[in-house]
Simulated scan of single mutants.
Amino acid sequence: MAKADSEKWTEVEKILQKAEKRELIDLVRELYTHSVGDRMLINSRYLGERVKKKMGKMLEKYRKIIKEEFLPEKGLEEIRYSEAERAISDYSNASGDFVGTLDLMLTYVEGGVQFASIFGAIDDELYDNIEGMLDRLCEQLKTEEGQKYYPLFRERVLKAGTGLEYIGWGFEDAICILIADIEAFFEERFEEDKNDT
């Protein structure tokens, strides 16, 4: 397969070398709008440090919004789940940063778990929202793109399942089942990769 891909690339490379500049720019534009991964590669290659700094500041801004919803500095208030979820969505749409979006999803889960462990059994809405976000995060980590980033988030995901023993309402069980499922998924992938080599 690798040899066939290499041969195909040689053919494509010959065609690209003869292409007009405008045609190549149009091709890059199409790739840029086609996928988040392509956009991130092009941004990092050509915009470099300036983009990284801007993205870092933007990520921190949205992370703060999420944290404020679960543990506000001014004291306990009603959690506005839609505000925290909008922060994730807004960041994702503005940046196209898949890893940063995963980070914000996990920040949401961590904030909810921390809130639940401090204040105990609050209501079904809290548990449904936290379980739902963890489920969405795990599904993203199972995608082809997400799989390469699981090691980056694994420790935080595992930690999200600790300290929930006294919360009740099945919250600890639901969180631990989701975490056990994602761990099993990656253990299976690891075994497959090991057997392939």
Score class of each variant (00 low, 15 high):
67 K>D: 07
147 Q>G: 06
85 E>K: 06
98 F>L: 02
84 A>I: 12
138 C>Q: 05
143 T>M: 05
166 Y>R: 14
113 V>Y: 03
178 L>N: 11
101 T>M: 02
85 E>N: 13
147 Q>K: 11
118 I>P: 06
104 L>R: 00
123 D>S: 14
87 A>Q: 15
91 Y>D: 00
138 C>W: 08
87 A>R: 12
97 D>T: 01
150 Y>N: 06
89 S>A: 12
126 L>R: 11
118 I>E: 09
82 S>D: 10
149 Y>D: 02
175 I>M: 07
74 K>H: 14
98 F>T: 09
160 A>M: 06
114 Q>F: 09
143 T>P: 12
171 F>V: 04
73 E>D: 15
176 C>N: 14
84 A>C: 09
173 D>K: 13
112 G>R: 04
70 F>P: 01
169 W>V: 05
82 S>M: 06
137 L>T: 08
161 G>K: 05
149 Y>G: 02
127 Y>C: 13
151 P>N: 11
95 S>W: 05
82 S>R: 11
139 E>M: 04
69 E>I: 12
105 M>K: 11
146 G>M: 06
115 F>V: 08
145 E>N: 00
106 L>T: 09
125 E>T: 13
164 L>M: 05
130 I>F: 12
118 I>C: 10
118 I>L: 05
90 D>F: 03
104 L>M: 08
136 R>V: 03
74 K>W: 05
157 V>Y: 08
119 F>V: 01
130 I>K: 09
174 A>P: 00
156 R>G: 13
100 G>L: 00
147 Q>T: 07
158 L>Q: 01
177 I>H: 13
147 Q>F: 07
115 F>D: 09
119 F>S: 10
77 E>Y: 09
101 T>G: 03
135 D>R: 03
89 S>T: 11
86 R>H: 15
83 E>Q: 09
156 R>K: 15
96 G>S: 07
92 S>Q: 14
128 D>W: 09
67 K>C: 10
78 E>P: 06
117 S>I: 05
88 I>Q: 00
77 E>M: 11
170 G>V: 06
170 G>E: 03
171 F>Y: 03
169 W>C: 15
77 E>D: 08
117 S>V: 08
79 I>E: 10
96 G>I: 06
139 E>Q: 14
139 E>D: 11
137 L>Q: 07
164 L>D: 10
104 L>I: 04
175 I>S: 08
127 Y>N: 11
89 S>R: 13
75 G>L: 01
